[in-house]
Computed example of a mutant assay.
Amino acid sequence: VSGVQDWKGGADPHAAHDHHAMAAAPPPGHASRAPLEYIVMRARAEHMPAPAIIQPPGAPNLFGPPNGNTWTLTTLTQNRPLVRKVSYDPETSLEVSRSGFADKHVIDRAVGYGIAWHEGQLFGLANQLVGVATVLALFTLAISGLLMWRRRKPDDALGAPPLPRDPARLKGVAAIVLLLATFLPLLAASLVLLWIVDRLILPRLPRAARWLGVARA
């Protein structure tokens, strides 16, 4: 499998102007004998998702080391599972190598699926509609939560909910929070900061503790 990760956050909007392929002239000292139109014809036969890019022999490779002595066809599609790379012989225009998403490391493939899902590119319009529905649900939750809190909070306090009476339920919530903190470093840092405020600062500020609803008897 390939060891080079492809965790980019999106394609360069200026990387291609043609929706089928963009061909560049060979740089000085790297002239090839295969006519460019043959390379373009073979590239179009691949039906790669746009933007697709043809790079001449010796050109800087967008994904790693220089291309070497081959024509290289790549795609910058945001749907990562469709990404692949094909190289052609500069003398005969015949295919000499091919690599794709399945050749990448398993971690790179998992991240690629996640990014494509997040960007709404994994399965087209349905993926985008799921994203829109998720955004609307989060927006509704934020607004409704604020309104419910404003209606129920005391006039002279923040209105924080009391601690649960069932210790077993509290342990279950703590286990879930600790599991999330293991994979989310910023959440872990926030929990440490909250613990410092709760244990070291609020005991010295009893009025603030009562207003927050965390005052201890």
Rank of each mutant, 00 (worst) to 15 (best):
G3Q: 12
G3H: 13
D6W: 10
W7L: 07
K8C: 13
A11E: 13
A16D: 01
D18Y: 05
H20W: 13
H20Q: 12
A21N: 05
P28Y: 04
H30K: 13
H30C: 11
A31E: 12
S32Q: 11
R33K: 14
A34I: 03
P35Q: 00
L36M: 13
L36Y: 06
E37T: 14
Y38T: 15
R44I: 09
E46Y: 09
M48C: 02
M48R: 06
A50H: 09
P51R: 00
A52F: 02
I54W: 09
I54C: 11
I54K: 04
I54F: 07
P57I: 05
P57F: 09
G58E: 12
P60K: 12
P60E: 11
N61I: 01
F63P: 01
N67Y: 03
N69C: 08
N69H: 14
W71T: 02
T74L: 05
T74F: 06
L76C: 10
T77C: 03
T77H: 03
Q78F: 04
P81H: 09
L82P: 03
R84L: 00
D89L: 09
P90N: 03
E91W: 02
T92S: 06
S93L: 05
L94D: 08
E95A: 10
V96S: 07
R98A: 11
S99L: 04
S99R: 15
A102L: 15
D103Q: 13
V106I: 15
I107T: 12
D108N: 05
G114S: 11
I115S: 07
I115K: 09
A116P: 04
H118C: 08
H118D: 13
G120C: 11
L122F: 11
F123K: 02
N127A: 13
N127I: 00
N127Q: 13
Q128A: 06
L129T: 09
G131Q: 01
V132R: 03
V132I: 07
V132Q: 07
T134Q: 05
T134M: 10
L136D: 00
A137W: 09
F139D: 00
T140D: 11
T140M: 04
L141A: 10
L141P: 00
L141I: 00
L141W: 07
R151Y: 01
D155S: 14
A157P: 07
A157C: 03
A157L: 03
A157I: 02
G159P: 05
G159V: 08
G159Y: 09
G159C: 03
P162C: 08
P162T: 08
P162R: 04
L163V: 13
L163W: 01
R169L: 13
K171Y: 03
V177Y: 04
V177A: 12
V177T: 07
L178R: 15
L178V: 10
L180Y: 08
A181K: 06
A181D: 08
L184E: 15
L187M: 13
L187S: 10
L187E: 10
A189F: 11
V192M: 14
L194C: 09
L194A: 15
I196M: 14
V197Y: 11
L202C: 05
L205E: 11
P206H: 04
P206N: 01
R207S: 12
A208G: 01
A208F: 06
R210W: 04
R210A: 12
W211R: 10
